[in-house]
Amino acid sequence: MRGGLEPSEYKHVALGLIFLKYISEAFQAMHDQLAQDEFADPEDPEEYLAENVFWVPETARWSHIQQNARSENIGKIIDDAMEAIEAEPTNETLKGVLPKNYARPTLDKTMLGELVDLFSNIKMHDSAEGKRGGEFFTPRSVVRKARQQRNVVEAKAFSERLQAAVARYHANAITSLEMIQELIDMAKDMKASADRGDDLGLNEEELAFYDALAQNQSALEVLGNDELRQIAHVLVEQLQKNVTVDWQRKESARAKLRVLVRRILKKYGYPPDLAPAAISLVLSQAETLLSWQAPQ
């Protein structure tokens, strides 16, 4: 299965399939456990919600995906599986989060089916590890990873890492199993990276701006974490107050935001020689966040 998927496609294709495979295995493990309890109902979604495990509808389970791996409709079958998972009331945290573009014409369905077959041979959930072992695919962390795509610094870092791994794979430098492990490791690292917000006392938007400001190590050394956290908080607060609906189309509105950002950075002593790059990155971050908030 080499040469079938572009590096940029792995981010959405492979990680989405890993998610489906993992939660299906976790669901089946819990289903088997509940089936052994005479007072439990393995077909009750709330039994799974109570254990922080996703309820997976029958048409979204990996067994169904695998059976249809060679179908010309495999893309739609996977999209429908994502839709079915989101539609479950007990999976409320996943609404609008999962990728649903596997049926797009540009995605090679033969290669997609081969990827499904490849993942079918890999066990991704170890029930012996308990919840700690599968922590990076809990409802809260899945939502946070999806939202993490709004963080331009993090998105760029993981995209570069992903493309490097895919390049090694296509160059026969790593095996299929090693590629899968790399993707799983990335998922774990994405969770760990998202947890930084809790450690820093920042919400997701503030963390994104903090990362933009701290991208230059010199700024972090000069100002320190506390000051950069404060700047990130002020930036989010002021941008929310001053952004207009048409800011992306009107140069005057964009100029106003640049001035606003420049003044905030100057007020808090952000190194002047680093300010131009920081302003550009902060505006890019603002545009990304606003595009996510815009009605679909």
Results as ranks from 00 to 15, higher is better:
residue 53 V to F: 07
residue 289 L to H: 14
residue 93 T to H: 08
residue 204 E to L: 06
residue 149 Q to C: 02
residue 79 D to C: 01
residue 24 S to T: 09
residue 188 K to P: 00
residue 42 P to Y: 12
residue 285 Q to D: 10
residue 231 I to N: 01
residue 114 E to D: 12
residue 261 V to R: 07
residue 141 S to K: 11
residue 108 D to M: 01
residue 293 Q to A: 14
residue 27 F to Q: 01
residue 2 R to D: 13
residue 121 N to E: 15
residue 262 R to E: 14
residue 154 E to L: 12
residue 71 S to N: 13
residue 267 K to H: 13
residue 25 E to L: 02
residue 39 F to Q: 14
residue 196 R to N: 11
residue 78 I to C: 01
residue 281 L to Y: 05
residue 39 F to A: 10
residue 42 P to V: 09
residue 150 R to I: 07
residue 216 N to Q: 12
residue 23 I to M: 09
residue 154 E to C: 06
residue 268 Y to L: 04
residue 216 N to C: 01
residue 218 S to F: 15
residue 270 Y to L: 03
residue 228 L to D: 02
residue 96 G to P: 05
residue 80 D to W: 02
residue 13 V to W: 03
residue 197 G to V: 04
residue 218 S to A: 08
residue 258 R to Q: 12
residue 235 L to P: 00
residue 27 F to I: 02
residue 243 V to Y: 05
residue 143 V to N: 05
residue 141 S to E: 11
residue 163 Q to K: 15
residue 18 I to R: 08
residue 60 A to F: 07
residue 6 E to D: 14
residue 147 R to M: 13
residue 76 K to V: 08
residue 255 A to E: 13
residue 86 E to W: 03
residue 274 L to V: 03
residue 153 V to S: 10
residue 104 R to K: 14
residue 71 S to H: 08
residue 236 V to E: 04
residue 147 R to H: 10
residue 87 A to K: 10
residue 43 E to G: 08
residue 61 R to W: 09
residue 166 V to H: 10
residue 115 L to A: 07
residue 172 N to I: 03
residue 269 G to K: 09
residue 82 M to W: 04
residue 198 D to E: 14
residue 225 N to H: 13
residue 235 L to F: 03
residue 265 L to M: 10
residue 174 I to C: 05
residue 275 A to Y: 01
residue 44 D to S: 07
residue 149 Q to F: 03
residue 52 N to Q: 14
residue 180 I to P: 03
residue 46 E to I: 07
residue 237 E to Y: 11
residue 272 P to S: 05
residue 36 Q to H: 11
residue 222 V to M: 06
residue 274 L to K: 12
residue 58 E to R: 12
residue 255 A to R: 13
residue 131 K to R: 15
residue 264 I to S: 08
residue 270 Y to K: 04
residue 291 S to D: 14
residue 200 L to P: 10
residue 210 Y to M: 04
residue 134 G to N: 09
residue 295 P to G: 02
residue 184 I to D: 13
residue 276 P to V: 00
residue 239 L to A: 06
residue 256 K to I: 00
residue 195 D to W: 04
residue 220 L to C: 04
residue 205 E to D: 13
residue 149 Q to A: 14
residue 156 K to S: 09
residue 186 M to E: 15
